[in-house]
């Protein structure tokens, strides 16, 4: 679940809701379908993927608020991010 702003820990600036799509759930069973990350500074999508312990190679697309973004895109506000794996073989 997405935490409300009032629940943010001291020092955190914004929260990012990350949805894992496709085979990422199978590959990383310790992660939930929806993960919430608290950030205290802007980060690149790639860094956020690393923070979750996901191999960058298994993220085919990333979207921020439903818009395709490169992995170098900066996340600097509360938003919803989708990480989409390659199709698992058709």
């Amino acid at each position: 679940m997405v935490k409300g702003r009032e629940e943010l820990q001291a020092g955190s600036e914004f929260i990012v809701t990350v949805n894992l799509v496709g085979c990422l759930r199978d590959l990383y069973p310790h992660l939930a379908e929806q993960e919430v990350i608290e950030l205290d500074r802007p980060v690149k999508v790639a860094e956020m993927i690393a923070r979750l312990g996901i191999s960058s190679r298994m993220v085919l697309f990333a979207t921020v608020e439903e818009r395709l973004v490169p992995k170098e895109a900066l996340i600097d506000r509360s938003c919803e991010v989708n990480l989409i794996s390659p199709p698992a073989g058709g």
Partner: peptide, 11 residues
Amino acid sequence: GYDISESDADV
């Protein structure tokens, strides 16, 4: 997917 994801020693 397992082959690729698990072959990355240093993410």
